[in-house]
């Protein structure tokens, strides 16, 4: 009979099997290292996608919310969260999807906004939380040169959460993370 397959990668990655339930604080810390599949400089916690972490007996329930209802990254995000926790030895995990309150860019942390800017994506401007406040903002600073002489090329961009903009000073195109 073939032995269970264990790759070298698994042996390196899997730390001691957890016998005690790790604290939710520790779990939040681990999830902060799970990158968003489309924008890997920020984590799923930075973006406000992870809403809650709680133990129900032996089961860890991680509550997540989709950014846009059709965002193809949603399934990948759940998978990556599960994998990250498995690597830490948490075996029994349930990913719970919650759609209300609806995700908003207001939940993106200040530190994450700075990371986005350094990555070349202009972070959301202003508060978005209500419908009707979605008009393109008057001023989006270019993430490359900082100029506010910028213009919207299209309200839609490379992912559902971004719009296409360009800078009239440095002439570089850039993504703007829409207030939503």
């Amino acid at each position: 009979m073939a032995a269970a397959r264990v790759s070298w990668g698994d042996m390196v990655k899997t730390e001691a099997k957890v016998t005690e339930r790790p604290s939710t604080g520790a779990i939040w810390g681990w999830l902060e290292a799970v990158p968003d599949p489309e924008i890997p400089v920020v984590s799923v916690v930075d973006l406000g996608i992870v809403r809650d972490v709680a133990w129900q007996g032996d089961m860890l329930v991680v509550t997540v919310t989709p950014t846009y209802s059709g965002c193809p990254a949603t399934a990948v995000i759940s998978l990556e969260i599960e994998e990250a926790l498995h690597r830490r030895g948490v075996e029994n995990i349930r990913i719970k999807t919650q759609i209300s309150p609806a995700w908003t860019t207001d939940w993106i942390t200040e530190a994450a906004r700075e990371k986005l800017r350094r990555y070349g994506i202009a972070p959301p401007v202003g508060e978005a939380a209500c419908v009707g406040a979605l008009k393109a903002p008057a001023e989006v600073a270019c993430p490359h040169c900082g100029s506010i002489q910028t213009e919207e090329v299209s309200r839609f961009g490379s992912t559902p959460c971004k719009a296409s903009w360009r800078c009239k000073d440095c002439l570089e195109p850039f993504d703007y993370f829409k207030s939503f």
Partner: peptide, 9 residues
């Protein structure tokens, strides 16, 4: 609630 935000844009 979720869909209305998308319908708005």
């Amino acid at each position: 609630e979720k869909s209305a935000k998308e319908a708005a844009y």
